[in-house]
Simulated assay, not measured.
Amino acid sequence: MQTDLLQEARRQAQICNACRYCEGYCSVFPALHRERAFGDGDLTQLANLCHNCRGCYYACQYTAPHEFDLNLPQALAELRRDSWESYAWPQPAARAFHTHGVRIALLGVLGFAVLFLLIRVLGTGAGNGFYAALSHSAMVAIFLPAFLFPLISLAISLRRYWADVGGEGLRLSHVIGAFASAAKMKDLAAGHGEGCNFEDEDRFSQARRHIHQAIMYGFLLCFASTAVGTIMHYVFGLPAPYPLWSLPKLLGLPGGVLLTLGTIAMILLKRKSDRALGDEKAWGGDMAFIALLGFVAASGLALYALGATSVMPLILALHLGSVLSFFLLTPFSKMAHGFYRLAALIREEQKKRAAP
């Protein structure tokens, strides 16, 4: 990781540790105040605990023009992005996505869409519904490796992170505590429970918390829909397409709506926020990921609505191209932050329970 980012984060953390005004703002400050010195792993842990709510910045008396010039949200955001790039496997892909995220995502979607259209021309389709455009065996052959790759890549990355932050053996209580915090988006409500200051400067708002929840639960519903469809196909011999009142549709449709609306709202919210309080180098990659995730959901809904029309093959190609790009880019995009943040919350549970 970059030494200058670690040194700046250490300088600011030491000042915050001496001040302690922001004691109960979020998970970062109790964790920060437990330490007397800050090793590289301690700073990386703090960076991945931070949700960039920015409440501490607006409450701080040592921000510019004070000579201390504190901007802890930015320092931790830059260190967080640098840690993801350092732990990523393969590493160059992460740095490339954060720098050229929009271009890479767009080329990936269009390139894979053309590939799927060419496969259709070769005549692999042999079935009902979408399988008439692309056979089930072709989909499995393409998407199974694409699904396994991010799992392997993230496992390598998280193992590196866990070693650097001094992670210990997992206990069920640690995992449950971390999942409970993540499910509630607890730190986006901040210590006062009134929300964060992400988009309205020193005004509190719950908007970012609710938008995050819409995206997270929308994604989980879509994933559950896919998982249920897979079980129905392979275990019960019930292949797609499925009717409206089937479980895959009952999970997937509201999930797609939540995900589409959530990503649109997040793009609008981020455009209102102050970039100087985040990591400007990650702006393009963040926006590309949100747009890609939203397009996956929106194209899935369009595919359902227009699946019986002549434009179905084109929409299917674009949807599958976006899904394939999403899978392959997951370890290097903002999607990885959910895994790192969960790991950070688990490590925080371990430290809290070990504290005297």
Results as ranks from 00 to 15, higher is better:
208 R>G: 06
250 L>A: 13
55 G>C: 06
62 Y>H: 13
36 R>Q: 13
318 L>P: 03
215 I>H: 01
137 S>K: 09
259 L>A: 13
169 G>Y: 02
166 G>D: 06
125 G>T: 02
136 H>E: 13
54 R>P: 00
10 R>I: 03
133 A>W: 15
142 I>Q: 01
179 F>L: 15
306 L>H: 09
76 L>H: 03
200 D>W: 08
337 H>R: 05
339 F>H: 09
307 G>A: 05
277 L>H: 11
148 L>H: 02
22 C>R: 03
20 R>H: 09
234 Y>C: 01
237 G>S: 04
322 S>W: 07
52 N>R: 12
350 Q>A: 09
334 K>N: 10
177 G>Q: 08
202 D>F: 10
119 I>R: 05
345 L>K: 11
279 D>C: 15
301 L>Q: 09
73 P>W: 10
169 G>Q: 12
259 L>V: 00
279 D>L: 06
171 R>Y: 03
282 A>E: 12
264 I>T: 03
183 A>V: 10
111 G>P: 04
257 V>P: 00
302 A>L: 15
298 A>S: 13
155 A>M: 09
67 E>Y: 10
213 Q>G: 11
61 Q>Y: 07
118 L>S: 03
53 C>L: 02
290 I>Y: 09
303 L>N: 13
83 S>H: 10
152 I>Y: 15
16 C>E: 09
134 L>F: 04
228 V>M: 12
311 V>K: 04
85 E>I: 14
177 G>P: 10
12 Q>E: 15
17 N>M: 07
342 L>W: 06
277 L>Y: 07
339 F>A: 14
108 G>R: 07
231 I>C: 11
94 A>V: 04
125 G>L: 06
258 L>K: 04
335 M>C: 12
350 Q>Y: 07
149 F>G: 01
72 L>W: 03
206 Q>A: 12
23 E>Q: 13
282 A>R: 05
280 E>V: 13
107 L>A: 14
112 F>A: 13
234 Y>E: 12
220 L>G: 05
9 A>K: 06
254 P>N: 07
130 F>G: 01
353 R>D: 12
172 L>P: 00
8 E>W: 02
41 G>R: 11
150 P>V: 03
48 N>G: 00
314 L>M: 10
241 P>Q: 10
240 A>P: 14
299 S>H: 06
92 P>D: 07
220 L>C: 03
243 P>S: 02
3 T>E: 15
167 G>H: 04
339 F>C: 07
95 R>W: 09
270 K>Y: 08
50 C>V: 04
12 Q>Y: 06
202 D>K: 11
136 H>W: 12
169 G>W: 08
80 R>M: 07
334 K>E: 08
92 P>K: 04
79 L>W: 11
